[in-house]
Design a protein around this nucleic acid. Sequence first.
DNA 1: GCCGCATTCTTCGAATTCGAAGCAGTAGAC
DNA 2: GTCTACTGCTTCGAATTCGAAGAATGCGGC
Lengths: 167, 167
Amino acid sequence: MSDSPPSLDPVQLGAYFDLIEVTSLLRHAVEQQLRETGDLSYVQFQLLARLGDSPTGSHRMTDLADGVVYSRSGLTYQVDLLQKEGLVVRAPSPDDERSITVTLTDAGRALLAKVLPGHVEVVSRLLFEPLSRDDVKALAGLLAPVRDHMRSMPSRSAAPRRRKAGA
Amino acid sequence: MSDSPPSLDPVQLGAYFDLIEVTSLLRHAVEQQLRETGDLSYVQFQLLARLGDSPTGSHRMTDLADGVVYSRSGLTYQVDLLQKEGLVVRAPSPDDERSITVTLTDAGRALLAKVLPGHVEVVSRLLFEPLSRDDVKALAGLLAPVRDHMRSMPSRSAAPRRRKAGA
DNA sequence: GCCGCATTCTTCGAATTCGAAGCAGTAGAC
DNA sequence: GTCTACTGCTTCGAATTCGAAGAATGCGGC
């Protein structure tokens, strides 16, 4: 029940804090750039980018929400906005009537292309400037397993149907 | 004007995406834990933690806002909430009448102590479980320079009062 | 075929978030 | 001393965010 000390290494603590701080600062900077260049929020950009990466240019709502770590209702709201701007289109999925398939339009692709260079520029300048090529490789090698680990974790309420719901 | 290619290395891209994804997932998990254990949002926890770290248990509003990368008005709102809960106290700064000094109360310290173990547990399980001790050291060594670099950057509009505001 | 349960998406209300505007207090020029 | 610009904090309105509840579809056992 208590086989771990109630605190983290100083090194761990530093890594954790820096991780949060670096990401916050990066996000903040990127957000400004996206707002200025394409009037997009960070989530909206992430959604467009994910759709643009897909071979079909489409994804289901649920997969998008999980992908960018966002609430379902929040995603509905954001896709509404994107659709109003003509950047994406909603259509019922062919194989599952419950699902909605979101697809990038040409306008969406164009806007993505318009904001990408500036986005890349900010990320390069803020995140990658102080890192050598090997540093980046090391960072990627460190983060990928963590990502996989987190994605494979039960989402903190995955098995509540386990009788009793005890503890 | 275009001395950098309009795209990132695949390795850079992977590192960037994983960074965002890892932090989003971690934040999400931590948020749930804090909400359940102490009815705190992540920002609120960060604020209490920062105050708890300070030798005096206090900080100026502005420094807190900058520290956690938050808007000034947002910070006012959050400190209001914390004060209503009796977790912090506001007082005018002795040396500068404009500044407000926020100080952690005993109740705040107690709540911090109450949520910390669970917090540490989540971070350990999600972030550090797949990383060896050396991995963590490497990660910290990679992120610290990036943090310093970002903090030293002009905040994207830092020198607009410079005549002409030219590029 | 039919019932119960899970999954998908949306609507709704409440809470949070930000930027712009406003109100002191401070500091430097003169 | 006084004027002007700047800093630190709060108020305000608008936009976003989430979770809970609701409506519709799919899936399994029988």
